[in-house]
């Protein structure tokens, strides 16, 4: 265990070094990400500016929601998205087999050897936007509020990482998994808005099978004292427990899938 913990930073550094071998691609990717998020941000701003509020959320509250979503996503996705999206190829080409012959957890090896530095751009954008939103939004500042804010942010990152991992792990059984990411990103787009703007069926889905409501909509509503449909007063503890619960589920599913791993032949 201790040895594994010692190896992980080395794996992350090796990945970073290998990424920096291609400087042009690295910087183009960063610029593209900033433009993509800035345009999404602009759409929400236009909507809020045009209609005043969206489902009772004003512009600064929406900015806090958007930045919380972006920061939680970047923390969770840097530990899962790129790595798990590559799992399908690793299964198909048999490179996962080589990891399984090493005395190290294949999950830990995959995650840390693909720790994506590209998410620092997301995180920085999220932090800057969050700082600005917090400076203008009316929040009941207290130690408890800050503690809940940080804990629910970590929980949101855990939900993101867990869902992305569970999608990737299906490749261990079905060989293919990447088509499921388009389903994830469909709901991911929705999860940047207050959950009460959606019909009940979508709300229920985003609080259960596709729990992306916990990425931002639920915790930020709790932090701003806004009502959360379906969950009501349970929304506060649910936002904190969602992360550990889905991480435990993802760990169980990973082991289950690995036991049933059949390779892709050859």
């Amino acid at each position: 265990m201790l040895r594994t913990l010692r190896i992980l930073p080395r794996l992350a550094l090796m990945y970073l070094r290998s990424q920096l071998e291609y400087r042009g691609a690295f910087w183009i990717d960063r610029v593209a990400q900033v433009i993509t998020y800035a345009s999404s941000f602009a759409v929400i701003w236009i909507l809020a500016d045009r209609f005043g509020t969206i489902a009772g959320w004003n512009w600064s509250e929406l900015a806090l929601l958007f930045s919380f979503h972006l920061l939680g996503y970047s923390l969770g996705a840097c530990m899962s998205f790129t790595q798990m999206r590559q799992l399908e190829e690793a299964v198909r080409l048999g490179t996962l087999d080589t990891l399984l012959t090493k005395p190290i957890s294949p999950w830990a090896y995959m995650v840390f050897s693909g720790l994506n530095p590209g998410y620092t751009g997301h995180a920085l954008l999220g932090i800057v936007m969050m700082g600005w939103a917090l400076s203008i939004v009316a929040v009941p500042w207290s130690i408890g509020w800050v503690a809940y804010f940080l804990a629910s942010l970590i929980s949101a990152a855990m939900v993101t990482g867990a869902v992305l991992t569970m999608i990737g792990a299906t490749a261990l059984i079905w060989t293919r998994s990447n088509h499921l990411y388009s389903l994830f990103f469909g709901f991911w787009e929705l999860s940047r808005y207050p959950i009460n703007i959606f019909p009940t069926a979508i709300q229920a889905t985003m609080l259960s099978f596709v729990p992306l409501g916990f990425m931002a909509a639920v915790p930020v509503a709790v932090l701003l004292g806004k009502p959360v449909p379906i969950l009501g007063d349970w929304a506060g503890p649910a936002a904190l427990l969602a992360g550990p619960f889905f991480v435990a589920l993802a760990m169980w599913q990973w082991r289950y899938a690995l036991d049933r791993y059949q390779g892709a032949g050859g």
Partner: peptide, 12 residues
């Protein structure tokens, strides 16, 4: 050793 799968880091 897998003849058709490398365990080495390609870019390093």
């Amino acid at each position: 050793v897998f003849g058709q799968r490398s365990q080495l880091w390609w870019d390093l």
